[in-house]
Every structure is written in structure tokens, then in C-alpha cells.
Write a protein that binds this DNA or RNA. Structure first.
Lengths: 334, 334
DNA sequence: CTGAAAGCGCTTACAG
DNA sequence: CTGAAAGCGCTTACAG
């Protein structure tokens, strides 16, 4: 591997000059500049990012703390983050916080990341957050002052879905979520559901809102399947099921199929996130969506802008999720 | 951020001693050791990985070059890689090679990765591979001498699927793949299909084997949908469709549903990879599978062992993919 | 067992 | 515009 000294020697200049022409941060005379470029390309020189980070203090490395990696929602957003980040010369690493969160934290901290985005809904141990703040890592979607927020808002989209169900004549609607019961009423999707039940003439049977009390680590589709099967086994009557996300809806649909129920003939189903496979499954899934690739890019851009301009303020913005109407939502069964 | 000098000062020892106790590579007296541990924990000291990499030459960072990130097959394997790697203190970064491969390569090279795993089926530019070899990055699943290989073998599993279809009375079976037509016959799944057609009494109409001539960058499910729709539009008769992978099968199933065909009543479908949602979609998908999490862990272990013991030889191993029988494969329509 | 020193490959004031 | 030098935070011979 060639290093800057090799390039400098071949070009017959100092290493500082090599840095200056390669980064373009300081003007360099034409002659020297050409010699440096020639030497660098002859030696196929590629700077060492660890050394750059150590000397400059800025780390072109973004971490993504994720839970439930196999949820396509996360992957689609991460794809956008990766796309923008790599365009800017940043690498992006995934940290699956579902296991060994403590060790994972040490690992993250040891990387001295330039930025980190949080996809984990559990509250973060404050100790970790403090460490990031102290280390000036640019944070996204952490629950603290020194963090950007780019939130998705579901309330209007969810309201549309609920009202549409009402128009279709549904009277008894259920809601299943991956949240633990004690936290579920904090979610805006569920809040919206509760608020609109009266207006829509839905039955207000509280046992139709079911949180994840299964325990253990499960995927959204597993939870969707189990909670739906339990509703059916319990003899609960409902003609429409709202699911907290698409993967959960997928699990719910499997349960309905196994019970011989037709979607949407016997029961309607909606999800949230508009994951890419939503239009491929059968029936295609009515959901709430937004451009996750663009969202990911915007996350990366926000972080990188701040890394490159530390004086930029932390901002809180949001992005609207809109209804995506497909076949899984239909008229209520007579 | 505390550094080794801070710890050394507080413990009243040299920085070398701090290194020695923290890494455990050299014996240190009890008294000093305790002082170092006490100082490190008091200062919440976490070593800087960039500095470690620069000084030691080993980079605890693994790259994954991936194509089609949203294919759950890749994600499930990557989850295994991440799990093992982080246990060993390695970070893992994703590089989506679907776009800007050239820039992406510079980025990868600049990281001086410890290891890199290749999930891209296109042949790699030799220039890049040479660079990795020269830089001693441990490679997995690259097409060269200095790379590990951990391949999945599909031939036996595929043969089982094909014979099962024959037992079910299928006479005309089609095969769709995401490979370009000119490369498709290199794939063992397609080879097996071609070899068994006679034995199974299948029609040997070559136009029933269709490669991806659509062009442009598409996802597997898009390709599956389009190729299947084209077969149907073209009036091709077949009662069984083998798909190169599960995502492709998902697209194919969507096409069948839209054409009002029942699966498996009118047409049977099989995939490959056994992605986690395969049992949730409707009908559940018959496929070929193996434990992708374990596979990912094994990939990471192989790479990390070699990073830590460079004298270890490159090995070529393989892992068998076995049939996973579900509802999408059934008796041929009379 | 312990520590002073050189070195990894860069960047960043600083001087010229 | 150009370059010599210090420094980023570690590890690794080397000497004691």
C-alpha cells in the first residue's frame, strides 16, 4: 500500500503538499499539483481513513443502531442512508441492538463514530447517550436535546384509513401492535384510533386493542400472527384489523388464512410503512407510506451536514405518512 | 474523552502498561493491574479503534458488499455476520454495490478493512480484487485464489423439488431467474432442472426457461412479476413454476393472482432461500433452505479467525440447502 | 515485570 | 505557494 510519503517522494514535494492538493483545501501551484496527481494515480494511492480520522478528528463513519433488522422498513431506510453517506465518502455500520446491548455500546463508542442514528424504540440507557454527547457524535432520533429528530407522523394518514373503514361499514375494528401494553397508548396510530372510534361509530371494546404481552424477542410478523390467532381463538368479533406495521399485518393475514377467513371479504387488514413487498403479497396490503429511500438520504444528509458544520443547530422535523390504498381493505361483511 | 495517557497518569503507570493490562497480552503485576483497571473504569475509558488499527495494523472492521439490499436473504445472512462480528469486537459496514461501484470501491479501499464478504454475483473488476490482495484484506466468496469460499449447494435440494413436482403429475414446468440469459445456465439450480427434465418426463420446451432480459436495475420480485406475466401473456402453458429465489417467487405469485390463477390449484410455485416471510405469505412458499443466521456467523468466524491468525489457509467449504415443503407446491391440475 | 521511545499515516498550525 | 514539525491515540520492539 502506497502512503502519502511515497506519493510525496515520487512527486518530489512534501507530504503536506500532497494533502493540500488531494483535499483541495489549500491552493497549490499548477506544477506541483500536476506532479502530485500523477504520482498518486501512478501509485494507485488511496488515503487511509483511520489515519485521516485520527489526525483530523472527524470520522466519516455513521452507525445505525437497529432493532429487528429483518423488518424491511428499516432496510429500506438504511438503503437511503447508505446511498447518501457513501456518496459523501462515509461508511455506514449496522449495530443490531436486539442482543448484547451493553457490549454493543462499547463497540460503538470505540469507533468514535461521526454520527449515529437510532432505530430502537426502547429508551436508551442515559449513560450511553451522555457518552455520545461528550464525544460530539451527531445523533439522530435519540430522545435528548442534542439530537436531531426526523419523525414520521402517522395521525392524518391513520385517520384517513380509519374513516375509510367506517365508510366501508365496519363497526367492530381491532388494533394490534408490537408495543408492550403499558406503552401502546403513547403511539399516535393507536391514539388516533382511540380518538376516532366514536366519530366512526366503532364499538369501543377495549379488549380489541391488543399490545404485545407475549414476552421474549419476537419479530413483528410473529407477534402479528400470535395476537391475531389469540383474538380469533378468543371468539372476538371484528371485521377490520389495523396493524401497527406491515410485518405485523403479514403475520395477521397468515392467521386469517389459516382460519379460513377471506381478506377483505370476511375481514379487512391494514398495515403501516408501505414496505416494498406490500404490493406483492396477497391480497395486496393497504398501508401508510412515504419514500423511505429519500427519508434515509435525508437522515444521512442531516447528520453529515452537521459533522462538516458543527455550528449547525439541532433541528426537529417530521415527514408525513400518507395512505396507500390497496386490496386488503374493503367493505364490511354484511 | 479519556485516552490512554489520562488512564496512565491517574494510575501512575506508563501508557505501555495500560495497553498491557487492557489487552492482557503481556503479564503485569497485580498492583499495577488493579490501579489500571480502577483508573480506566473511573474515567470510563474506551480505547479508540482508529488509533488501535493504525498502530497495530489490524482493522476490526468487516465490509459486506451487497447487491439488492432489500432481498431478505442477504439481510438474514448479514444479521448472522453482525452477531458474530460484534461479539468479537468487529464492526460491520454495508456497501451497496448496485450503484457507483467505482466510488464505492475507493471508499472500501480507504477503510483498510480487515475483511470483506462478497454478495454480488457480477464478476468483480480484477483491479479491485488485486488491491484487496495487496492490502491483505481477508476475502470471502470472491472468485480468486486468495479468498475463502463458503458456498451453498442447491443441486440435491433442487432435485428433490423437481422430482416432487413430477410425482405430483406436473408435465410442463417453467423456470424463471434473475440471471441474464447468457449466464443462467451456469447456475446449478437451472442445470439441475435441465438435467432432470427427461427423467421426470417434463416437456423440454426451452422457452420455458426464462432469464432476465429486462435490463436496468430491478428487484427480484419485480423481475419475477414481469417474467411470469410475460409467460402468461405469451400463452405459455405450464402447471409448475420454479423460481431462482423466494423474492422472485413472490413476484411470480402476484402475477398469478392477478391472472386469477389459484396456487397451487392451477399452478405450483417454488422459490429458494427460505426467507423468513416465506411461511407468512399466501399460500406459504415451498422452497430450499438452510440456517442463514448460522451461515452468516460462520462467514464472520472464518474471516476473523484468519485476521487473527494470518497463517491460516484459505478454505473452500459448502453448505447444503434442503427442501422446505409448504403449500405452494401441489398436485398438477388435471 | 516496567517504561521511554519510535512509529502507524495522516492533518494542522506555523514559518518562510 | 511550500515545507518542516508536532500531534492524533494507540502498539510494539527494545532496554532495563
Amino acid at each position: 500500500m502506497a502512503n502519502r510519503a511515497d506519493v510525496a517522494k515520487l512527486a518530489n514535494v512534501s507530504v503536506a503538499t500532497v494533502t493540500n492538493v488531494l483535499t483541495g483545501r489549500k491552493p497549490v501551484g499548477d506544477d506541483l499539483r500536476n506532479r502530485v496527481f500523477a504520482a498518486a494515480s501512478k501509485l494507485k494511492y488511496i488515503p487511509d481513513s483511520s489515519a485521516q480520522r485520527l489526525a483530523s478528528g472527524v470520522n466519516k463513519h455513521i452507525g445505525v443502531a437497529v432493532s429487528e433488522m429483518t423488518n424491511l422498513y428499516h432496510i429500506e431506510v438504511i438503503k437511503g442512508i447508505e446511498a447518501y453517506a457513501t456518496e459523501k465518502g462515509f461508511a455506514v455500520s449496522l449495530f443490531d441492538l436486539d442482543s448484547n446491548a451493553q457490549d454493543k455500546f462499547r463497540l460503538i463508542a470505540s469507533r468514535r463514530l461521526g454520527g449515529i442514528v437510532n432505530f430502537v424504540s426502547d429508551v436508551y440507557p442515559d449513560e450511553y447517550v451522555q457518552y455520545f454527547i461528550q464525544d460530539n457524535v451527531v445523533m439522530m432520533n435519540f430522545e435528548c436535546e442534542q439530537s436531531f429528530r426526523l419523525d414520521t407522523v402517522y395521525s392524518d394518514g391513520m385517520a384517513w384509513l380509519i374513516r375509510q373503514a367506517a365508510k366501508f361499514g365496519h363497526k367492530r375494528a381491532a388494533f394490534i401492535t408490537t408495543h408492550e401494553p403499558r406503552y401502546m397508548h403513547l403511539d399516535t396510530r393507536i391514539k388516533t384510533f382511540c380518538e376516532l372510534r366514536d366519530e366512526c361509530g366503532f364499538d369501543t371494546d377495549e379488549s380489541l386493542i391488543v399490545g404485545n404481552d407475549i414476552g421474549g424477542k419476537r419479530t413483528s410478523e410473529e407477534i402479528g400472527y400470535e395476537l391475531t390467532a389469540r383474538l380469533l381463538d378468543g371468539g372476538k368479533k371484528f371485521t377490520c384489523l389495523f396493524c401497527i406495521n406491515d410485518m405485523t399485518a403479514l403475520g395477521a393475514m397468515r392467521a386469517f388464512h389459516e382460519y379460513g377467513l377471506d381478506i377483505p371479504g370476511d375481514v379487512s387488514v391494514t398495515g403501516c410503512d408501505d414496505i416494498s413487498i406490500g404490493k406483492y403479497i396477497f391480497p395486496s396490503l393497504t398501508t401508510l407510506g412515504f419514500d423511505k429511500f429519500v427519508y434515509g438520504r435525508e437522515i444521512a444528509k442531516t447528520i453529515i451536514d452537521k459533522i462538516e458544520n458543527p455550528q449547525l443547530p439541532y433541528t426537529h422535523r417530521s415527514i408525513e405518512s400518507v395512505p396507500v390504498y390497496r386490496n386488503s381493505l374493503g367493505p364490511a361483511k354484511k
